[in-house]
Design a protein around this nucleic acid. Sequence first.
DNA 1: CATGAATGAGCGTTCATTCAT
DNA 2: GATGAATGAACGCTCATTCAT
Lengths: 188, 188, 188, 188
Amino acid sequence: MARPKNKDRRSAIMVAATRAIVAQGLSAPTASIAKEAGISNGSLFTYFETKAELLNQLYFELKSEMGTAAFEGIAAKRSLRSQFACLWSNWMRWAMAAPEKRRAIALLHVSDDITRETRVALHKELSPIAALFEHARSKGPMKNASSTYVGEMVNAVAETTMDFMLQDPKNADTHRQAGFEALWRMLG
Amino acid sequence: MARPKNKDRRSAIMVAATRAIVAQGLSAPTASIAKEAGISNGSLFTYFETKAELLNQLYFELKSEMGTAAFEGIAAKRSLRSQFACLWSNWMRWAMAAPEKRRAIALLHVSDDITRETRVALHKELSPIAALFEHARSKGPMKNASSTYVGEMVNAVAETTMDFMLQDPKNADTHRQAGFEALWRMLG
Amino acid sequence: MARPKNKDRRSAIMVAATRAIVAQGLSAPTASIAKEAGISNGSLFTYFETKAELLNQLYFELKSEMGTAAFEGIAAKRSLRSQFACLWSNWMRWAMAAPEKRRAIALLHVSDDITRETRVALHKELSPIAALFEHARSKGPMKNASSTYVGEMVNAVAETTMDFMLQDPKNADTHRQAGFEALWRMLG
Amino acid sequence: MARPKNKDRRSAIMVAATRAIVAQGLSAPTASIAKEAGISNGSLFTYFETKAELLNQLYFELKSEMGTAAFEGIAAKRSLRSQFACLWSNWMRWAMAAPEKRRAIALLHVSDDITRETRVALHKELSPIAALFEHARSKGPMKNASSTYVGEMVNAVAETTMDFMLQDPKNADTHRQAGFEALWRMLG
DNA sequence: CATGAATGAGCGTTCATTCAT
DNA sequence: GATGAATGAACGCTCATTCAT
């Protein structure tokens, strides 16, 4: 029923999984995740039926969190550009503040274990952001492109920018701005 | 030298590995790669010392091939824009013609088994393309960004476009053009 | 602690390993040891991290046991000769009673997997016996030889004697006595 | 028919096997022996049908050689003691001069691959030495022991002494003499 | 519900031996 | 005969998952 008794323990597993995946890759053993979470290996399976289930839920939560963080305060902005600027700034700030989560998302993104259902559910969850992209698209030079294409394009530019900010934190600001300007030029 | 190490067999392994990785992920067993290649499991190791070695060589070859294909005929073009247009068109054509290779590259790109050496060697191998990006960067609005950042940005846009072209082949042309225009706006 | 690591099971593995090694040599597969012990192949590794670890612990335990058995009741003896006679008699009795253990010790003795640490630890464990040899040495014609040399000499004579007793049990007594007399002449 | 065309090559394999076994243990791969011998891995099997066959022949040759070396010049000696002294001195000299062969013999001695046939054949080959032991036995305190027992006892004492001489070459002479005296006391 | 030992399929790799050249 | 690539059984070990306590 996916309704575990102990919420803290569940989220301890999530945190542990993030750390373990970043440190050891997606093949991090469940036993090592459990150890990191301070529980026994068997207990992990009372919270998540399978490892794949854990990965899917982790991906969903991390990406939702990232989306929520990115969307903060957008509503108050007037112009599309300032909305995007706000989104971009939130997004990059989150990535810099939570580099492990960011890296885990990147790894999970390409995992075979992440189901189509999870991806679809995430899409729904992040629809306010998609709506923003959609708005931009419909008014700009990409008006004939599909909306998910625009979304993935924004995402790709963002991911690339994050990687560079994290790799080279001294010039993080430069990268952030360059990324935003590039994106804006692209969208139009 | 009786029964010399067979170039066909080596490349049969490469093809088989590509197929197996696309079908089963990076964790595709070496035995399954061997079977797909029509050789015994042990034979694989006369061609590649370890699985990691195979993956590295495969990544190098696939990406080199992609780069070479993309670069075809660029030299004849005059303007920067027509060089990029040519590159883009070659690149997308290759991706559509070899979707498995394309997918394998994407998977290998994030593998822990791919060493820094391989990535560096590839960078060298693909330096003509990097030079093209560098040229574009230095003349446009991204002149203050790092050259690898521009390169990764181009790559990200290309990857995203390929994914959409492959997912939705009917509108492949639309996506290709939209991608190119977006890229060109970005670079500028 | 549910289902605590089971001492019986551990010793079942030891017994099984002894049997398997005697039957198949040191290259006896861990799977075959596990089967003999009535557990699954994977379970073996909850008791011993590696096969080498198992072999080391087995060697240590078998040889300690042999030493303890050999040393039994020595303290009560007065003369050096009667101490040696007691040691010898215990030793040979143990070998006849546990021929598999004896054979396993002989095989393990020459294994590359047995570490220096194990050999040193055994030396410590068996130091009372070494002290006895040392005592004999210092008073006899071998007073100028090294103490470990004398120890190994005694060991060699004992091993040889055991082999003959086991090969030819009918004349075991004759061999035992001949061995002791030979040893005593040697030590002097 | 065990009559290989090329005697040099055969003995090159023997030498290589000795070296490889000393360096890597009895599990030294046949490929590594072949490489050491400067031939291809497949060629090894035109000289020896199986690895076990190679090991048996190697054991036979090494031990025969050792025996022959040890027996040199014995006939000229009069007294039993001087015969033994000569044997001992030859034996130890050979061991010091050919420590690898010595070590290989020790390893092969305990190998499961060495057949009873080989051991019997060696016994025959070394019968002159056995006769010497037999002579000593029949006149001394071990007159009631079996003749092979005496032989093995001598062997054990010799092996132990060699090990110490090789381990501690500075005191090799001391060990050699101590060993001989101990042996002589034992025999008689 | 927590624990951690038990399970056993599965993996990458090795290596004695065979065989095409 | 020599070569070295090909073979495939075998091995030690891992790990997601189960289950007795």
